[in-house]
Structure formats: structure tokens, C-alpha cells
Design a protein around this nucleic acid. Structure first.
Lengths: 139, 139
DNA sequence: TTATTTGCAAACGGTTTGCCGATTA
DNA sequence: TAATCGGCAAACCGTTTGCAAATAA
């Protein structure tokens, strides 16, 4: 049973054949496609139809939204137009402005600083989005 | 002459009547609508047509893209679907998850930390996007 | 004059939705 | 069985674009 399938059970999300396939593809996405994998709905649909070619893209849309609302996935809009998804986890992204490659990172210092800033402005920090855009240093 | 109109001159952007009106509305947007003003194209079009009701929304789209490419405006996709614009300036945003209100802030510490992180990952920091999401602390 | 810009309406692309038969718990 | 879900195709909505007339330099 895939990671996401388990989370569905936890949260009482009904599991259908289609959802199981989508959950499986998402759960395996990083392992198979590497760390910079943030598939959009179209890409997801392509991968899913390899397993079951009856699954419609409407179902992928509905499922991905469902998973997002359940806190299982997070949705990114790195560039408007196409949303991209990955399993929920609080890391940040560095985007290579030349190749489009995405590097993930976490940094406790930044996280603490953010909390402090929000407090200073009179808010409790609930969530954050940090994207760095950079170009590779050649050596 | 509005702030943006001046920048257009600098960058050699041809100034038409329509662009002057749009530049004016954008330049005045913060003063009139307050610090949380990040109008979308539709809102911009509404404000612009008060001055000249012949200006089409296609022109607003084209102009806003032009200004963005000239580095005069920045485009935000706080939530996908509708882009929002403001005069270019490197501050960050804190978004009230309850009211949608947007608070702007700058923080040198965070900026330095970001630069350091990018370096550590082998990149030169070119740009960044930081959005905090929080809920107001009641007192 | 000549390259550029505008308004209009149609096209576009990602996403959502109504309908209704199929499936899950 | 009752509630929910999935497939299909049409609708939706923000944005872009081709065209011919208008305009800036």
C-alpha cells in the first residue's frame, strides 16, 4: 500500500481504483523521477494511464484537488498557467533560471526568522512559501 | 508626469495615450488604495476606464506585460487564476489567511540568509519570492 | 511616412462541472 | 442499498492573438 493510500485511510478519504493508481504514481514519483519531480496534471495523467488507460484527466484533476484539501499534496504555481504537485512536506525551492531545474532545501534559521517576522507584524505564522531563483556558479 | 511614465522614457518604451492612463493609475494605486493594493487586470481596467472608457482590456493586458518585461512592474500569482501587479520593488508579502489582506515587509536578515543558502547550493541568487501566510494575533 | 499600437472578437489552454451510469463502504 | 465517484463533453475564465483601422515618432 502506498504512502498516500495510507494517508487517505487516516483521513477517511474513500479509496477507489483510480485513486489508488494516482496515489501510487504520486508516491513513487520522487523515487523514480528524481528529486526535481513536481509533475503537473498532464504529466500525472500520462503516468497514470500507463497503469490504467481508462482514467480520465478530469479524475486526475478531481483527485489531486481532493488530496490537496486533505493536506496530502501541495500545489505549486511556480509559473502561472500550470499547477504542479508534490507530496506535502515543508521544504523550499531553488529554481535554476536557466534550466528550470528545481532544487529542494530546508533551513531552520530561515524558518525561525520567518516566525519572528510574522510575530513582529502581529501574526501567527501558519504557512510560508519561499522560492529562490538563481544561476549555477561555474567552477 | 507619473513615475511609471518616467521609467518608460528611460527604457525607450513608446508612450501612447492609453499607456499614459494605465501608468498614471498604477503610479497612484498605492496612494489612493492603500498599502495592500495589488490590483489584478480586471480591477486595473475598471480604474482605467473611469479616465478613458475606450481602453480595452486587451490593451491593459498588453501594457501590463510590457511594463513587466521592462522591469517596471512585478507580477504576483498569490493564488493561481488571476495575476496581480504592483510597481517593482523588492519587498515580501505576508498574507492574512482569513481576510486576504496583504502586508508588505522587508528584512535584511532574511535577504542575507537567502543569499548564503543559494551560495551553499552552488547558485548565485538572482531573485526570490517569499510569502508568509498567517492569522492575526488578537489581543 | 512607416513601424507600432489598439479595439474587437475569436481562439487558447488549463481547469471545472453537469449529467448519468458505475462503484464503494 | 445509499452515497459517492468517474467518464465524457461542454462550459468556464483568465489570457493571448489575428486582423484592419488608428496613431506615435
Amino acid at each position: 500500500m502506498s504512502l498516500i493510500e495510507e494517508k487517505c485511510k487516516e483521513k477517511g478519504v474513500r479509496l477507489t481504483d483510480q485513486r489508488k493508481v494516482i496515489a501510487k504514481v504520486l508516491s513513487e514519483s520522487k523515487e523514480i523521477y528524481g528529486s526535481k519531480d513536481h509533475p503537473d496534471v498532464d504529466e500525472l495523467h500520462k503516468r497514470v494511464t500507463v497503469i490504467d488507460d481508462k482514467i480520465s484527466i478530469a479524475t486526475v484533476y478531481r483527485t489531486v484537488k481532493l488530496f490537496e484539501e486533505a493536506g496530502i499534496l501541495i500545489k505549486h504555481d511556480f509559473k502561472a498557467g500550470k499547477a504542479r504537485y508534490e507530496i506535502s512536506d515543508n521544504h523550499n525551492h531553488l529554481i535554476d533560471i536557466n534550466s528550470g531545474e528545481i532544487v529542494e532545501f530546508v533551513d531552520k534559521d530561515i524558518e525561525n526568522l520567518q516566525k519572528k517576522i510574522a510575530q513582529k507584524l502581529g501574526y501567527n505564522l501558519v504557512d510560508h512559501k519561499l522560492e529562490l531563483y538563481g544561476s549555477k556558479i561555474k567552477k
